[in-house]
C-alpha cells in the first residue's frame, strides 16, 4: 500500500532533543513547515502522553506557512542508563476544500489520505 509521503517539512526531522537537568520542565521546539499550495491539518501523537505537554497539539497550516510546536517534557527522575523510548508522530492530512469541522475530518479520514512522520526523543545532560 503506497503511503502518501509527508508533505510537511519537520525541523528537526528525526530526533527531539531534551537537555537536562530534568528536575523542571524541559521544552523542545518542533517546527512544521507547509511548502505545498494546500492547507494541511496536523495533529501530534506520542507514545508517552502523560509525560509531555504539546502546544499546539493540532491545527491547520496555510500554504507556505509554518507553525512552532513546544514539546514540554514534565520533570522526572533522569536515569542516564535508561535510553528514552518515547516517540512522537506528526499526523497530517490535506484540508478539504469545504470547511468541514476538524473532528469529522480525522474520524472520516481514509488511511491512504493520512501522512505521518515519527520522531525519537533523545535526553541529554548538560555536558559537565
Amino acid at each position: 500500500m503506497s503511503k502518501l509521503d509527508q508533505v510537511l517539512i519537520l525541523d528537526p526531522p528525526c530526533d527531539l532533543r531534551f537537555k537536562g537537568p530534568f528536575t523542571d520542565v524541559v521544552t523542545a521546539n518542533l517546527k512544521l513547515k507547509n511548502p505545498s499550495d494546500r492547507r494541511v491539518c496536523f495533529k501530534v501523537k506520542t507514545t508517552a502522553p502523560r509525560r509531555y505537554c504539546v502546544r499546539p497539539n493540532s491545527g491547520v497550516i496555510d500554504p507556505g506557512a509554518a507553525v512552532n510546536i513546544s514539546v514540554m517534557l514534565q520533570p522526572f527522575d533522569y536515569d542516564p542508563n535508561e535510553k528514552s523510548k518515547h516517540k512522537f508522530m506528526v499526523q497530517t492530512i490535506f484540508a478539504p476544500s469545504n470547511n468541514s469541522d476538524n473532528d469529522s475530518l480525522w474520524k472520516d479520514a481514509k488511511p491512504d489520505d493520512l501522512m505521518d512522520s515519527k520522531l525519537r526523543c533523545v535526553f541529554e545532560m548538560p555536558s559537565e
Binding site: 495533529k43 501530534v44 506520542t46 507514545t47 502522553p49 505537554c53 504539546v54 516517540k87 515519527k118
Partner: peptide
C-alpha cells in the same frame, strides 16, 4: 515494518 509503538493523542495541558 510494523512498529510496536502505540501512539496516543498528545495533550496540551499537563
Amino acid at each position: 515494518a510494523l512498529s510496536e509503538d502505540e501512539f496516543h493523542d498528545a495533550v496540551s495541558e499537563s
